[in-house]
Each structure stands twice: as structure tokens, then as C-alpha cells.
Nucleic acid binder design. Structure first.
Lengths: 134, 134
DNA sequence: AAAATTAGCTTGCATTATGCAAGTAAAACC
DNA sequence: GGTTTTACTTGCATAATGCAAGCTAATTTT
């Protein structure tokens, strides 16, 4: 999402959001933080869908620039950085929750993972609250 | 979204959704159908952000293949096609609603359009119901 | 204290997606 | 019958993504 195209200039809220997380990877990185407790570059590199290291670096930089995540040295291992969701980033929990709900209702593939779906479906508010108060 | 990459094979619900609407344009097309009553190729071509005609054709084809929209001849103008959201497509209303809410809370640009945000914020359920029962 | 390893990148290059302008075909209008 | 409308497709330029290798700093190992 390094392009400065017209999406930026339309005042539309959908376009605004897409400019920040509307690409192939950003929401997957955010998913890892929200659902799987990942927080470092190397942990993100191991995400199942396989993100290239240059793209990962670009997306983390972008999310940081947009105020969705923070980047800080890990005090216990100073060659590592810890990425964490900001309040603005945690506020994306309802978006992630609704995507999970929609996909859970529509994904008929036998290998579809339903754990997250069942959790959100059981108690959407608890799921969101858990992330927001993290 | 014509790529057959690993996102398809991860059983993750977030990845499943992204494969269907996680690109720069699909949700904008869906937005036009949900919010602005647009339904034909030429109407989509006039969306403010400016989509190329080949990309538009590709995305409409993909959304149709995924069962999000239907494509039918306009009986009143047989050179035109009418695209309409399926039940599966209308079920994306909560996703769109949450993106609008998040953006509305975070978009500080002076030219940000707040109409949709205010509407969803005032009564999220009514907004969703209006789309689902359309 | 050197050597090896870990972590987080960057770089160069191939592949793929996107964007733009022009063109095509069928239907409708005059 | 000629022009316009509608929905595309095509060819080509530009940009994004993916892949493998390389680099630097911090840490661990020997």
C-alpha cells in the first residue's frame, strides 16, 4: 500500500480504511497479533500464508506510520523489536470479527478452521472486549 | 484477485474473506451497491476513486464466481447488465459497517465524508437490516 | 575474543497485478 | 443506415509482489 492514488483523496470512509489495511497482508498481520499473540518480525514470518520479508517490512512500516501498531525494542533481546497494536489498531477488532463471522458462515471447505468463528459467534462482544482490553 | 496463492489453502477465515474481497476495489464496488444503489458496469465506472474498465470487469467476474453478486440482463435495456448483491453479498453489510465506523472514528481529514458514518453510528442494526432486506 | 547464530531487515531481479488508451461487438436510437 | 450506448477486451506501460541472497547489529557459543 505504498501508492498515493486517488483512494486517498476520496473522502469515503470505506476507501480510507482500505488505504490502511485493504491489501493482501495487513489484516493477516493484525490477525496474528489479535488471535495468536505474535509480536515480532520473525513470528510474522512464520505465518501460515507465507509473507515475503520485504513485504512484511513494508507493511509493518506502513501500519506503524498509520498509528495502528507501535514498534519498540525488546528489552529482553535487543536485536528484536516488539510490534504491538495501538488503541487504534485494537479498534479494528470488530472488523476482524465480522470478517470471521462472514467467512465462517460461507466457507464450506473441509479444511476450514472454525475455532475462531465459533468463538466469535458464541460471544462477539467478549471476543472484541478481550482484544480491546489487551 | 485472480491469483491462486497460499491464502486459498490456509483454512483461516480472515484469509478466506480476503481472497474474495481483500483487494483495492471489491469492497468499493460492494459499497456502491449497498450505499449508492449502483448496479451496472457504467455506473461502477463512475465511482469517485476511478477504476479501470478491465479491472472492473475482472472484479465483477470474480465476485460473481464467488457468489457475492449476480449478473442479469436488464430487461429494459438489453445491452446492459444488472449486477445485484446475493444474500451472501448482503451479508457483508456488517463488515462494511464496521469499516465505516472505524474510519469515521479515525479519519481526521477535513474532506472526510461523515454521512455514512453518522448513519451507521446512529443505528448500526437499522443500517444492516436495510441492506439485508433489500 | 573469535566464530557462529539470530533477528530484522535491504537489495536485485523475476513475475504478476494494475492502470491507461484504444478498439470491438451487440443493442438501441435517430 | 449511421450514430450512440453499453460492456466489455486488448496491448502495452507502470507498479506491486514474491523470491533468494546478502547485510548489519546483537547475542550466544566455543
Amino acid at each position: 500500500m505504498s501508492k498515493k492514488n486517488k483512494l486517498l483523496l476520496s473522502g469515503c470512509p470505506v476507501a480510507f480504511g482500505l488505504n490502511i489495511f485493504g491489501d493482501r497482508w495487513s489484516l493477516l498481520i493484525i490477525r496474528e497479533m489479535m488471535l495468536n499473540g505474535k509480536s515480532t518480525n520473525s513470528q510474522f514470518q512464520s505465518i501460515e500464508e507465507g509473507i515475503a520479508t520485504n513485504i512484511l517490512a513494508d507493511r509493518l512500516r506502513h501500519l506503524e506510520e498509520e498509528g495502528v501498531v507501535t514498534k519498540e525494542r525488546d528489552p529482553d533481546n535487543r536485536r528484536s523489536f516488539i510490534y504491538a497494536l495501538t488503541q487504534k489498531g485494537r479498534a479494528l477488532a470488530p472488523v476482524v470479527a465480522e470478517i470471521i463471522l462472514w467467512s465462517g458462515e460461507n466457507d464450506e471447505r473441509p479444511f476450514a478452521k472454525r475455532e475462531a468463528f465459533l468463538k466469535v459467534k458464541k460471544d462477539r462482544e467478549a471476543f472484541i472486549e478481550e482484544i480491546k482490553s489487551a
